[in-house]
Design a protein around this nucleic acid. Sequence first.
DNA 1: CTCTTTCTTAAGATTTGCTTAAAATGGAAT
DNA 2: ATTCCATTTTAAGCAAATCTTAAGAAAGAG
Lengths: 222, 222
Amino acid sequence: MRILVIEDEPGIANFIKQGLEEESFAVDIANDGTMGIETALTGEYDLILLDWMLPGISGIEVCHQYRKVNTDTPIIFLTAKDTVQDTIFGLQSGANDYIKKPFAFDELLERIRVQLRPKSGEHETFTLGNIELNTRTHQIFKNDEEIFLTQKEFALFEFLLRNKGKVCRRTQIIESVWDIHFEYNTGVIDVYINALRNKLDMKESGPHIKTIRGVGYIAKDL
Amino acid sequence: MRILVIEDEPGIANFIKQGLEEESFAVDIANDGTMGIETALTGEYDLILLDWMLPGISGIEVCHQYRKVNTDTPIIFLTAKDTVQDTIFGLQSGANDYIKKPFAFDELLERIRVQLRPKSGEHETFTLGNIELNTRTHQIFKNDEEIFLTQKEFALFEFLLRNKGKVCRRTQIIESVWDIHFEYNTGVIDVYINALRNKLDMKESGPHIKTIRGVGYIAKDL
DNA sequence: CTCTTTCTTAAGATTTGCTTAAAATGGAAT
DNA sequence: ATTCCATTTTAAGCAAATCTTAAGAAAGAG
């Protein structure tokens, strides 16, 4: 799950980035409206957090522009203003929700989840055989026994499960999970796949992550 | 499906090459404008990815030159520039689309597919009897049972299916699938045709790959 | 029947992925 | 700031799958 934060104050931007990364979202920051709209349009994000007050192009303007091209990706406004007027205006411009600064991080998280839930059309848990992944609580159970994964392990596994049955190409994985876009000559994926297979105890029979040589991996039941 | 990438930065060029090869395109790289236009004119490519900023001859110039000779092959510009002016200018010079760097690989892939789809006039799946090939997910099903092919096997089979009913000459095959252009005295094709017939279980009756003695092969239903 | 082309198999070369250990990174605690 | 610890990444040797070559067997053409 990739999130773009369009916010000029580095302090706030980094605070949000860190918090979201702890929840294993992949977060990019754009620090002004121009960069923001450009990045939003090039990259593929699942959600956009948009500051109301931006130097140069305003948040509303960014939202307007973006909505001309993309009407699916949810946008949540971050705003210091708090009049009802502004709120209505913001939502009319195409945003899906808004949150007033200062805000409790958990509240932000909650609103993000609300926006992401209906979009994926999925539940908040995914399963692979007897393994269950809960995106909400960030836990993994195998036969009701909890298994602890690190951030990256979890993010990779979640990506595979969200695409269960479909082939996940190495390029897709390195982009979605590691956020690396150009030059890519690393063996990280192999290492983490290996870790997953070990921790989740995926031998021959039973659910497994199959490798498609020269292409990538695929998670399959049975 | 053959793609030429004209791009001077090795990092980006190789990243694109790998990504596209995972999708089983045959990719060649030219690292400057002169080489680029030369290769574009000699080889037979289905699509060209052209960097805007090139040492020596610029991307626009390459595009202009190329369009004097060939007006069919789609060209997609890769550009760091982002002004509307440049874009319009680029498209006027004969390009079919453009994409701003940095871009998400999936977006590039999508644009490539948009360009290739109308040209081939085909869908993203091909069938041969009860066998179905999905170019998108890179999978093959026979009566809804998945059959795993290697890269080369898949590429060869895809080529045959794209030309279903038409005779595929050995020279065509070796050029499109193996990217070998001149000297050619190898028995690889035979070996791979054999592998396909085995894996896909093509006996006499039923769908099969018929061999045309002295010429090549043809994929036929029934 | 003889010659040519294709089929089939097996073995060698090459590429790709697996696995492990060690180095780098980053956070938390002292 | 320093140390410690967990996580992430890099690197390298090994294993396995794939690709290519080659050579004898089979099949088709004349």
